[in-house]
Amino acid sequence: METREIAGKTLAFDADGNLANLADWNEEIAQALATEEGIESLTDRHWLVLNYMRSEFQEKGDAPSIRKLTKESGVDTKELYQLFPKGPAKKAARIAGLPKPKGCI
């Protein structure tokens, strides 16, 4: 566990570098995390994925797999990789303030 400043707040992060407390998250922090991941500005398409991930997490306790994202978020696999280059499930979870997804698929 480490704490550091992001978007003007001092927050706790887990070993993967994801937010430790779900409740600390807001849209401003999401943008700051996105910038760290090399995404300049979050578009409506990014938000579609992020909001879907947050609602799935709140319901099921784990971030959704790529397959679920592809089938249910309204954004297909190709676009997911364009929106969140180099690992959409992992990156989108981090930007959404969630822990790293546990699933293999």
């Binding site: 790529i66 180099k86 690992g87 499930a89 992992k90 293999c104 698929i105």
Partner: peptide, 10 residues
Amino acid sequence: IMANGARMEG
């Protein structure tokens, strides 16, 4: 599974 998992990790 390993190929998909690799891509998921970038």
